[in-house]
Design a protein around this nucleic acid. Structure first.
Lengths: 194, 194
DNA sequence: CTGCCTATGTCCAGAAACTAGACACTTTGC
DNA sequence: GCAAAGTGTCTAGTTTCTGGACATAGGCAG
């Protein structure tokens, strides 16, 4: 079993991030005060500082946790639909669209191309490139072993297109998530078969 | 949000019971040492004592937790099959039989009529009467509002029979859980319609 | 520009919780 | 009937959280 103190510590950190998350979604990051986080987590202000050091660090940890959950969700979604090329892509895209729909924090990270109207995290995330790169890499690794029959060039082309289209529909939706997911999957299928 | 210290405390208590549970199922209650529990939970021996006081208290808490989970499971099972008399009974009985099958601790509590071969908890549980009374009471309360068309006498008769038959089959199984559950449900149906 | 207000981040004394070792007492097995 | 092992108590010491004081920076009203 893991050491007791470790799990107490992670309990504390999770509570702090939970509190921060609620406050962020309720009133935006720039209105979140350390005092509020501490109060909501039922902890002293000092404890927040000893745990995370600075306000920015809390924001980073919050974004990081959200991103990790997202990537984990993508991974599980892909694993659940094993083998079927278009089916996997459809499921992954739909998962992303639906998750981002009711997860304003993640959405703002995924789509933070410019400063944007909401200065939610801004400088914290160095824009969305790292996350999208990671996601793209994950898809690449997954598809490389899932669909060996597709040549490397077509596959990379299809994946990049899928990622870009997904983000595009995130920013500017035109149809329901399922419908959009299906269309993107079809496009990917044609690219890889072209 | 609940106070931080409370959740740390309950985390500790859960860990200790988790550790105790593993040890009990692995080697029996009489072979479980406080030192082992402490080690498995990653905590000092003293912490175990300040939290639970005595060895017996740990055993009681362990049994209590298991019983509460069992009753909660019964409640949820009944709620899931709303309205249908025989269906509810069948589901509840099957749940009990299957749970007890892979939960030696609970089974020993449910069937502890005498000292038994295993001196697992013995004096801790004052025998199974309290638990069975509680379960019977729960079923009574549930059925009273779920099947108002059945008169009180028939209902109580049916419930007591169901409980006794379930425990009986727990001790001396003759068929698979589903089959037994179905038969007991039929019996209950006939009693209430008699 | 000045002064006030609010928030961040640091420091520190004290309280609370966990650790580790010693000890008295009881039970168990040889 | 003695040694070993386990229970339960006590205590000194460490880690972690608390709460209040403080220096500093940024915004904003007059």
């Amino acid at each position: 079993m893991t050491r007791y103190r470790e799990s107490v510590r992670s309990l504390l950190r999770e509570r702090l991030l939970d509190a921060a998350y609620e406050l962020v979604t309720a009133e935006g990051w720039n209105r979140v005060r350390i005092t509020h986080i501490a109060a909501k987590a039922g902890v002293s202000r000092q404890t927040v500082y000893t745990e995370y050091g600075t306000r920015d660090a809390i924001g980073q940890a919050l974004v990081l946790r959200e991103v990790e959950r997202f990537l984990l969700g993508i991974q599980e979604t892909l694993d659940a639909t094993d083998g079927d090329l278009e089916g996997s892509i459809e499921a992954g895209v739909q998962f992303t669209l639906e998750l981002a729909a009711d997860n304003p924090l993640l959405k703002s990270v995924l789509t933070s191309s410019r400063g944007g109207d909401d200065d939610l995290m801004d400088h914290l995330t160095t824009r969305s490139e790292p996350l999208l790169d990671t996601a793209t890499g994950m898809l690449d690794a997954y598809t490389a072993q899932a669909w060996p029959q597709v040549d490397n060039v077509s596959r990379s082309l299809a994946i990049e297109t899928v990622v870009r289209l997904t983000v595009s529909h995130l920013v500017q939706p035109v149809a329901a998530a399922e419908e959009t997911a299906r269309r993107i999957a079809v496009i990917a299928g044609r690219i890889t078969r072209g």
